[in-house]
Design a protein around this nucleic acid. Structure first.
Ligand SMILES: [Zn+2]
Ligand SMILES: [Zn+2]
Ligand SMILES: [Zn+2]
Ligand SMILES: [Zn+2]
Lengths: 151, 151
DNA sequence: ATAAACCTTGGAGTTAAATCCAAGGTCAAG
DNA sequence: CTTGACCTTGGATTTAACTCCAAGGTTTAT
């Protein structure tokens, strides 16, 4: 049996996190000591491993609660149910990636359009693109020309 | 001049959002009517366009506050400063994408390993992978065999 | 003159996943 | 018998970007 601090150290999480998981129904220690200390069994540790793994592939704690409820009543769930959760999450993740890819490509275009030099931003292509009343965000690809210093 | 509802409609945001931007120093109407109504000028509208565009490429409102403070004092900032903000944000976005790509690939492996059928999840490869004590999350690529029904 | 649609303010609630705090109980070492 | 490390609880705070609410003032149309 592990006390909360031991289990936390073992899995490199904070004790607060374990108490938080308990409060949210994800992981409750199977026993308490006489003094009221949480005592975690090997099974509890296994469950924590499950939680941490599921987090590592992108599941939210809510998702994990669902997975855990399946996990401890496997016989009454089908592969289809489990795969459904995974596929749904995969779609969410892919949607988020698509959004971020769009950000990245936009930012990249902006970056390319700016000379990045030490001169005044008065004609900065990035700011111009953000100011523009065009419907599309379209920075000129050529760098602006900063006035030559001292001809 | 636009009243808050008009400007909101024009840019397809909520009035609450405009008040929120004001509270956070992003966009304050340049005038008020006698009755205290916010009145937005064309310049204010232009500033809102800037904010919305910057959001659309992934900047947070904090980032945008910084961009706006540069925007209205361009002469005292260099292209390097602006490009720096863009490049920093681009790195953050790329880091997030990398994390999500890892999630997606993990989820994809899990999904592939599960038959997705209507039979009991007792031997589901997804659950097994999450339970596993292996350091790596590695579902078997072959689907488990569910017992044949009725031989 | 009254109803509908609009505006004002301050403040509370939402979501996610912790993280931190205070006041106090427990336990082992010296 | 006292320090220090550990544990308990309930509740507050954090971050981001809104979103909603209540109570009341304003405008406009009928
Ligand atoms: Zn430049
Ligand atoms: Zn520039
Ligand atoms: Zn199966
Ligand atoms: Zn399966």
């Amino acid at each position: 049996m592990y006390r909360i601090g031991e289990l936390a150290t073992l899995f490199d999480v904070k004790t607060d996190t374990l108490r938080f998981y308990e409060k949210h129904g994800l992981l409750t220690s199977s026993t308490r000591s006489e003094a009221g200390y949480r005592l975690y069994s090997q099974d509890d540790a296994q469950k924590l491993r499950f939680i941490i793994r599921a987090k590592a592939v992108g599941f939210s704690l809510n998702d994990i609660a669902e997975l855990l409820s399946i996990e401890l009543d496997k016989a009454n769930w089908a592969c289809a149910d489990v795969k459904g959760l995974v596929d749904t999450k995969l779609e969410q993740v892919q949607a988020k990636i698509a959004e971020l890819e769009f950000f990245a490509s936009s930012l990249n275009k902006l970056s390319q359009a700016c000379c990045g030099g030490p001169d005044s931003a008065e004609h900065c292509s990035i700011l111009e693109a953000l100011e523009s009343t065009d419907k599309e965000l379209s920075p000129k690809v050529e760098h602006h020309l900063h006035a030559e210093k001292q001809g």
